[in-house]
């Protein structure tokens, strides 16, 4: 009873969390476009997945708002979702950007990603780009745009984004979980039936042996 209620609550919460995480995607069609990380810096690689395309389904993603063009989504490890990746180009302004996916089955889902400034990740990301000129240019571009503080990227050029995250040194941080985790109901706890059965078998054998022994002894006395 209680577990059922718990399950239901969890399911409802899961749906509402997805809704919160990607406001562009509505829960009405039960499928959203998950963008991971949902907050990223230029140069970061984004992973997008959705269940809208159906089991084994594919689709085409549109990230032109980000300047990243189109990308393909193919069936992921869990066959029910389609997965695609893109890299955020350097030089994209901070802000909220929409990304959409049109599945081969005709369904369309949207999600969004919040871009923040490049600087706090530049070390690790530049390292990965082996010092290409692209990243150098990207950095300079970012510097200029911050100086001017203009607002071109999206609806909301991130009044809330750049500083607030950053507990882990990696993009996409919202909040860390708190408290313990409910991961068991005690269904594994109980007697060791195999051991009990073995013990019972040994006892039965001993009893049979004892009876035999006693009988033999009795017949021996009679005979003698």
């Amino acid at each position: 009873m209680r577990t059922t209620a718990r399950l239901l609550t969890t399911a409802v919460l899961a749906v509402s969390t997805i809704g919160l995480g990607a406001p562009g995607a509505f829960a009405e069609d039960h499928a959203s476009l998950e963008v991971f990380p949902s907050t990223a810096a230029p140069g970061a690689s984004l992973t997008l997945n959705t269940t809208a395309c159906g089991p084994g389904g594919e689709g085409v993603g549109d990230a032109r708002a980000l300047g990243a063009g189109e990308f393909r989504l193919s069936p992921g490890a869990h066959k029910e979702s389609a997965v695609g990746q893109l890299r955020v180009p350097y030089g994209v302004q901070p802000g909220v950007y929409g990304v959409s996916v049109r599945c081969d089955n005709g369904k369309r889902v949207t999600g969004e990603v919040t871009l923040r400034r490049h600087q706090d990740e530049s070390g690790s990301l530049n390292g990965k780009n082996e010092g290409e000129s692209e990243s150098r240019e990207g950095g300079g571009d970012q510097g200029r745009s911050q100086g001017q503080g203009h607002d071109s990227g999206g609806q909301d050029s991130g009044g809330h984004d750049p500083g607030g995250y950053e507990s882990g040194g990696q993009g996409g941080h919202h909040q860390q979980p708190s408290g313990h985790v409910q991961t068991g109901v005690g269904g594994s706890i109980g007697p060791d039936t195999a051991q009990v059965a073995a013990g019972a078998a040994v006892l039965a054998a001993a009893a049979a042996g004892g009876t035999l022994l006693l009988r033999r002894r009795a017949s021996g006395t009679q005979g003698g």
Partner: peptide, 8 residues
């Protein structure tokens, strides 16, 4: 046998 049953 007894030990097995009890322990199990």
């Amino acid at each position: 046998g007894l030990w097995l049953v009890q322990n199990g």
